[in-house]
């Protein structure tokens, strides 16, 4: 009998192959997540709810992952996830989305969920552009990159969501590239199965094969090596260090175990129950 790939039990087989471009790194994210789940002995994804917005990366859970999934409006995944988690805290809620979805149109929900330390896991697939709409500049586009909306090279300062979120009440903030497969998988395990509460954010730098990698001259044969070469571990960076524009800071930016929003809300409603209404 043919051995099944470890990810298969978590996927809707009938929807494969995916509609992603040849060589798209979204598959790496699916694999890392699947590997994490398999290593934790998860047999079925019942009780997991995936929420995603609009974008190529938002297609990862919908329709490919065999679980409940809400494929919602562009930018609104975190807001919907909040509703799901508060309505039924027993559900494990995972948001997967792009840099446009989460760091541009949906950034306010992301930051507020982090401020609340809302008990969800957010995986941001940072492909450095708007992939689905054909390669426009995104808030994470590195300076100099030619995109369809910056044909002379992007000149805007990009945002580093890990540094932004580190300053909030989020419990966990990490970034890896698709070249850090094992670290990524371990971060997912850590967030989902060790920490288990509060806001947990994992960013995956996965340059869009179609609109970024080619323009940056990253060849399929060498892209993993290039990403590793340009990565800098967060713990090696000291305050005030200037980070080269082409280097990617990776690692665990923050890991804490504060009570999340759900516990705070439950305490609050216990208090409310003790108070006679006027």
């Amino acid at each position: 009998m043919k051995k099944r790939h470890f990810s298969q039990k978590y996927l809707r087989i009938e929807t494969l192959p995916t509609l992603f471009c040849p060589g798209c790194f979204n598959g790496v994210v699916i694999n890392a997540l699947s590997k994490a789940l398999e290593e934790e002995g998860v047999a079925s994804l019942r009780g997991y709810v995936f929420v995603s917005g609009i974008g190529c990366s938002s297609w990862i859970p919908s329709p490919y992952i065999l679980a409940d999934s809400l494929h919602v409006l562009h930018g609104r995944a975190v807001a919907v996830a909040m509703g799901v988690k508060l309505a039924n805290p027993k559900l494990e809620v995972i948001v997967i989305g792009g840099d446009g979805d989460l760091a541009s149109i949906g950034i306010s929900h992301l930051i507020h969920a982090a401020r609340r330390n809302l008990d969800i896991v957010v995986i941001m697939v940072n492909n450095l552009v708007y992939g689905m709409t054909r390669g426009q500049q995104s808030p994470t586009t590195p300076r100099g990159l030619e995109t369809t909306t910056t044909p002379y090279g992007s000149f805007e300062y990009p945002i580093d969501m890990c540094r932004v979120l580190r300053e909030t009440n989020a419990n966990y903030v990490a970034r890896w590239t698709i070249a850090h497969f094992f670290q990524l998988k371990d971060s997912i395990r850590e967030a989902l199965f060790r920490l288990r509460r509060g806001f947990r954010y994992i960013e995956v730098v996965a340059p869009c094969t179609t609109y970024v990698a080619r323009r940056l001259g990253l060849k399929p044969s060498s892209i993993l090596r290039d990403l590793l070469k340009n990565s800098k571990r967060v713990e090696e960076i000291r305050r005030g260090d200037t980070i080269g524009e082409d280097s990617i800071v990776v690692g665990i930016f923050k890991s804490e175990d504060k009570p999340g929003y759900i516990e705070l809300y439950q305490d609050y409603s216990m208090r409310a129950r003790g108070v006679q209404s006027g």
């Binding site: 809400l70 807001a79 919907v80 909040m82 509703g83 988690k85 309505a87 929900h109």
Partner: peptide, 13 residues
């Protein structure tokens, strides 16, 4: 925007 979208999630839950 968050309000209406949170309602959507809550309703499905």
């Amino acid at each position: 925007i968050a309000a209406i979208n949170a309602l959507i999630g809550a309703s499905w839950a």
